[in-house]
Design a protein around this nucleic acid. Structure first.
Lengths: 204, 204
DNA sequence: GGCTGTGAACCTATTCACAGCT
DNA sequence: AGCTGTGAATAGGTTCACAGCC
């Protein structure tokens, strides 16, 4: 293995690999070849080998990859060790659905606090989390919370993002249909449902 | 304008452009240059010009693009004319949140029927839509519904997809963390929240 | 023999640089 | 003069083909 700049696309695929590997582990499968994993996940075997080769020589020639080890290594690459607390901003329909979403746990994320600006919601419990006033976002710094999920309307999203950044948050999962301006050190991943939807008719 | 194969990435960006243009129209702005639109949407001006140039000569040299006309042309490219009925499968947390999501209307989609397999939910109304038994998916053919949104657990997703395809659906927006095998003529767009989440820690 | 790891070739998409139109 | 439209150059990513190791 030599030094290579790691393609963004590779990082995007790692969680897919991880899911497939986890499934194999749950089936008690010890070892897997790139071809087998490829068929399962509908990507190419070469792609899988190249992707992992950017990070090290994880496989054994003539044999394949050890499932358990590869999971560990992939999780390490993705920095998924341990559970991280995250803040959810916006306790509307989407926010509430996200609170119940089981996928967060799998990737080591736990929503530990919810913020909303609607005074009738503040103080209430939903799914075990207490809704706090959006003005208290600044307290995230004290609590050491570095990740946040934005599930507020587009108009409010930039303002919320600014507050989160000021409170020391450095990773944001944004569900608002809005580009967020943030400092370079902060990573934003936007999931824009309407936008994905908008290109569906084109293909059919 | 000459013939060019249209990059997938271009199609992916068109809804972004559309959103920006719609915003400008709402502000009663008549004309926009590629540079102005680019700053606004945080993409490059060259990119915007090249993207639109695949479809025709929409701009006026020395002037820019007419906002209203460009919206019309973009919507036409994306085949967003008129409203299409869509079926939602899964009336859980996510499904319920999607029912209330305002973005669908913008892109000409209207959820006209909801399916679930939970007998306690069947027959109930949520957000103006009646929940029907998942066994009735086959009736979509009669009703001419061609688009569907899958918001069920991963284990059930492939089965639901098969049923939808059998009922003549040719476009699926899939929220289940699962690759769906469908015939080539059917377009699937998957939005996998956990997967996006899984690569966030890597970048921070 | 079988499967990984990887340089080289290929393909796709973005950016540059400027010709062409208003 | 100003801004679009586009061939050419560049960058980014995937696939091929095979050497290297178990």
């Amino acid at each position: 293995m030599k030094y290579h700049k790691i393609p963004d696309e590779t990082v995007r695929r790692l969680p897919i690999y991880l899911r497939g590997l986890q499934y194999l582990l749950d089936k008690s499968q010890k070892s897997v070849s790139s071809v087998e994993l490829a068929e399962f996940l509908h990507v190419s075997a070469t792609q899988i080998r190249k992707d992992f080769s950017y990070f090290g020589d994880f496989g054994i020639r003539g044999v394949g990859y050890n499932v358990e080890t590869l999971i560990k290594q992939t999780r390490e690459i993705l920095k998924l060790g341990g559970t991280r607390g995250a803040a959810l901003v916006g306790a509307g329909n989407l926010g509430t659905a996200l609170l119940a979403y089981p996928g967060f746990g799998t990737y080591g994320l736990e929503i530990v606090v919810v913020f909303d600006n609607n005074s009738t919601k503040i103080g209430k419990q939903i799914d075990g989390a207490k809704i706090e006033d959006i003005g208290k976002i600044s307290e995230l710094k004290k609590r050491g919370i570095k990740l946040a999920i934005i599930a507020v309307p587009a108009e409010a999203a930039q303002d919320v993002a600014d507050k989160l950044v000021a409170a020391g948050v450095n990773g944001i999962l944004n569900f608002a249909p809005q580009f967020l301006s943030v400092p370079k050190k902060v990573k934003v991943i936007t999931i824009d449902i309407a936008m994905e939807l908008g290109r569906l008719p084109y293909y059919i």
